[in-house]
Design a protein around this nucleic acid. Structure first.
Length: 591
RNA sequence: GGUCCGGUAGCUCAGUUGGAUAGAGCAACAGAUUUCUAAUCUGUGGGUCGGGGGUUCGAAUCCCUUCCGGAUCACCA
């Protein structure tokens, strides 16, 4: 039983003995004591004055007395107005330390035991390389997967690749027309960048054609439809759908280049997948579900043969789910893919990491699945995240303001190298070790920067200023870990904790922070929010740095105190390492 | 126009789901180590929690209203 439930039970007990009132456990709320006051847990008595029929101070004092006399872990309590603050004993904290020092799994919870969750993220198009927006997506998806695993879930990471459609044909066509047989090998370009180059080229020539057509008197709308290039691209899509050998061969070749490129980017980012789904396989799915919906009366067929769902009663609109010619639309595919996922994995929950511009779409998807009575529908969760803006505004590929993922990582690496060298921290490292270190720091800075912000928020990325190495940053936490490691390198055995000893206030505060780790995991898993972990890591690192500054660890003369302090170092290092791992960030032992 | 999301210090963000005097980092300024890594620590200044109502012992948090920014309401994906 945790100390929190013990306290709650005792508070319940005191209500019944003092005021003859039987309350339920969920009526009792325990909070962490505000930093400005003495104590660890606070019980607010204001809501219970009607029961006690006493003044707030009186009520709190009476309850405090009952609880304290029945719990040896409480050192003292104090009452300020209606706030009853309990202070835990030093012995309690040292016991906590003793029990968890050798526990490598400290922080793990069992919230998701026996449950399976699928996390779909990344989901790129194969016509251009990944950019900053994808980076946020990938890091969120990977981190959420890590967190859910740590919270006891069985996790399947999925990537649904958008590998077909008119946009893919655009790069293919442009390559055919202007490529002169260029390949990643011949050009030395990464495959995804090569495909992207031709996608951009298509757009250039296409816009030129539109302009010329407008000059001959066409409206812009007509010009966009009549331009020879777009017509050719549409022809190509038809050929692809008909299975034309030549087109399919080109498609396979170019997609192959792109996948090889993506793989490198994913590897460098440290993200990975268990299942891959390809739209070229799934874009025809969902029609069975449409029929099922028609039979159940969830969908209706219009006179022209198109199939619809009326969601006006749910505050949404009437949505098409199948065209009159029987072909699929976006939502049809997603219904089908959801079913496919369930057939394959029987997941309880299904998380989609997709930008917030699709909030509406996923609301519709979930609603449809619920109306179809799908067992997995309640577990559908859209992890919606805000756009990453630049100081100049939105990222726009046409204006060339897109921040490319590969370039970004390369720049970060260079910055990490420069700063490390400036600080003169390169001594004692081999050249090869330094390259690894720069990469670790660079990725730590980038990942932490993107993950520490609540996903729902839009965020600003300023290439010049944003990524810092001081304060609330990845490198700060990495540095803290490295500092601890340099202390722990001096010992060879696990420190022995003595529970009869004193604790320095900074030690107590750090232990207090560390003890919150499991509940932070539960919160982050429940809310699918890595930012909670990131900010918690910062709190932990700060608490350690304060301790590090205030007391000597290796220089402590009292052997028992020294052992306890080393134990605190051990559990802190472990917590930082585990927590950062949940963000996909590696913490170095030296830096 | 309807719907959804956001608005907290000069900047970037927290705020434990209604609690105590609203917190961090950056930037600015002032300090700290003959010591286990100064990518550290301590302090100072900086606030109409977008505005206005309401609910109650108590509101950044809940309700109403209004302003600003963004998204979305495609037989595109």
């Amino acid at each position: 039983m945790t100390i929190e439930t013990t306290l709650k039970n005792l508070i319940l007990q005191s209500f019944s003995s003092l005021y003859h009132e039987v309350l339920k456990p969920e009526d009792i709320k325990l909070e962490l004591t505000n930093k400005d006051h003495i104590g660890d847990f606070t019980f607010v008595v204001f809501p219970f004055l009607r029961i006690s029929k006493q003044k707030p101070e009186e009520t709190a004092t009476n309850i405090g007395n009952v609880v304290k006399s029945n719990c040896s872990d409480i050192a003292s309590f104090n009452v300020i107005k209606g706030f009853l603050n309990f202070e835990l004993s030093t012995g309690y904290w040292l016991n906590f330390l003793k029990q968890n020092i050798a526990n490598g799994d400290f922080g793990k919870v069992t919230d998701g035991a026996g449950k399976k969750v699928m996390v779909e993220y990344s989901s790129p198009n194969t016509n251009k390389p990944l950019h900053l927006g994808h980076v946020r997506n990938n890091l969120l998806g990977f981190s959420v997967s890590q967190i859910l695993k740590f919270a006891g879930y069985e996790v399947v990471k999925a990537n649904l690749i958008n590998d077909r459609g008119i946009h893919i044909c655009k790069s293919m066509l442009a390559w055919q027309l202007y490529g002169n047989g260029e390949t990643p090998e011949s050009s030395g370009m990464k495959g995804d960048h090569l495909a992207g180059k031709y996608y951009v080229l298509f757009d250039q020539y296409y816009r030129e054609e539109i302009k010329n057509l407008i000059d001959t008197g066409l409206t812009e709308e007509d010009a966009k439809k009549e331009a020879p290039l777009i017509k050719k691209a549409q022809e190509m899509l038809l050929k692809w759908e008909a299975g034309d050998t030549e087109t399919i061969a080109l498609w396979k070749t170019m997609n192959g280049w792109v996948y090889a490129g993506f793989e490198k980017t994913y590897n460098r980012m440290g993200v990975s997948f268990d299942n891959y789904y390809y739209e070229s396989n799934t874009y025809l799915l969902g029609k069975d579900c449409v029929n099922e919906g028609l039979q159940k009366g969830v969908f209706v067929k219009d006179p022209d043969g198109s199939v619809w769902i009326d969601l006006t009663a749910d505050g949404l609109d009437r949505k098409i789910v199948l065209r009159a010619d029987g072909t699929s639309v976006y939502i049809t595919q997603d219904i089908g893919t959801a079913q496919l996922k369930y057939d394959e994995t029987k997941m309880d929950k299904s998380v989609y990491v997709v930008g917030n511009e699709q909030d509406y779409h996923f609301k519709v998807l979930k609603l449809i699945l619920q109306k179809l009575g799908k067992p997995y529908s309640d577990g559908v969760y859209h992890l919606s995240y805000g756009m990453v803006d630049l100081p100049s505004g939105k990222m726009k590929s046409r204006e060339g303001t897109v921040v490319d993922a590969d370039e970004l990582m390369e720049d970060m690496h260079a910055t990490a190298k420069q700063i490390t060298e400036e600080l003169g921290k390169t001594e004692g490292f081999l050249e090869s070790q330094l390259e690894v270190l720069y990469e670790t720091i660079a990725m730590g800075a980038l990942k932490y920067f993107l993950l520490k912000v609540d996903p729902v928020k839009r965020m600003l990325f300023n290439p010049e200023e944003s990524i810092d190495f001081h304060g609330n940053t990845g490198p700060f936490i990495q540095y803290t870990h490295a500092r601890i490691c340099s202390i722990l390198r001096n010992i060879t055995t696990t420190p022995v904790v003595t529970t009869e000893a004193n604790l320095h206030p900074a030690e107590q505060e750090l232990l207090n922070t560390i003890s919150l780790f499991p509940s932070k995991i539960s919160d982050a898993a429940e809310e699918y929010n890595p930012a909670l972990i990131a900010n918690y890591m910062f709190e932990t690192a700060k608490a350690f740095n304060r301790l590090y500054h205030d007391v000597s660890i290796l220089g402590e003369l009292d052997e028992q105190l020294k052992q306890n302090r080393l134990a605190i170092c051990t559990i802190t290092a472990n917590t930082l390492k585990q927590g950062m791992n949940l963000l996909g960030i590696v913490v170095p032992e030296r830096m």
